[in-house]
């Protein structure tokens, strides 16, 4: 198989199947959760549920001071990774073209050097988090193979994207194909692992906040 055949396969069938699995998987999991049903709360609300929900969505986005002291690596590297990833994913000009092609929406890109720096930050942060997980016996004990899988499928698109952009190690065509294939792998793994938090995080925060908010408890 030539590099070009690989790239065509990645841009074609591989992404098609990955998209199907991703969309079906995510929807099934969402509907499964929401159709489980909740017990009706018959008590009189003490405060607004929605207000509590939104407040928690916001409040939990700011790490609690105690937590920063207790787990600084997780907090700092975690934030660095997520922000770096979002910048690389959403503000790299070629990525915006992809979103425009799929969703019909586009927005201005950030300069390449900004995206480049964000990618490096995300890659380094992920490596730090992996080492952190491996070095600490408790964390290592708590980690299952799925955690490492999730780490790997998140790391690979960043790494291959960076290498492709800088024409490193492999010819651009081949590296670009691997980049797209790694994204396809991410999409396939996504619905069935804790990567689902991308969509559920704010829903679950809101839900927790709303339950407490209704009882008049401010989280």
């Amino acid at each position: 198989m030539t590099d070009m055949e690989l790239l065509n396969w990645a841009r074609g069938p591989a992404l098609e199947w990955a998209t199907i699995i991703f969309v079906v998987g995510v929807l099934v999991r969402f509907l499964e959760m929401s159709l489980l049903g909740r017990k009706p709360d018959l008590s009189e609300a003490r405060a607004s549920a929605a207000g509590g929900g939104w407040r928690t969505v916001w409040r939990r986005s700011i790490p609690a001071p105690g937590l920063v002291k207790q787990a600084p690596v997780v907090i700092y590297a975690g934030y660095a990774f997520h922000i770096g990833l979002l910048i690389a994913l959403l503000f790299f000009a070629p990525h915006i073209l992809l979103f425009k092609d799929v969703f019909g929406l586009s927005w201005p890109a950030l300069p390449f050097f900004v995206v480049d720096a964000a990618t490096v930050i995300a890659i380094v942060a992920l490596l730090v988090l992996l080492v952190h997980r491996l070095v600490n016996p408790v964390r290592r004990f708590l980690s299952s193979w799925v955690d490492y899988l999730v780490w790997a499928v998140t790391f690979l698109p960043l790494l291959t994207g960076y290498l492709a952009y800088h024409r490193m190690i492999l010819p651009y065509t081949e590296m670009l194909a691997y980049h797209m294939l790694s994204v396809a792998l991410l999409l396939v793994v996504f619905p069935f692992t804790k990567l689902m938090h991308t969509f559920t995080i704010f829903v679950s925060r809101w839900y927790n906040g709303a339950v407490s908010g209704r009882k008049g408890v401010q989280l």
């Binding site: 790239l7 065509n8 841009r11 074609g12 992404l15 098609e16 998209t19 070629p94 990525h95 073209l97 992809l98 092609d101 799929v102 969703f103 019909g104 670009l176």
Partner: peptide, 9 residues
């Protein structure tokens, strides 16, 4: 080249 070949939308 960054766009998929097929209409993923």
């Amino acid at each position: 080249v960054s766009m998929p070949i097929s209409d993923l939308g």
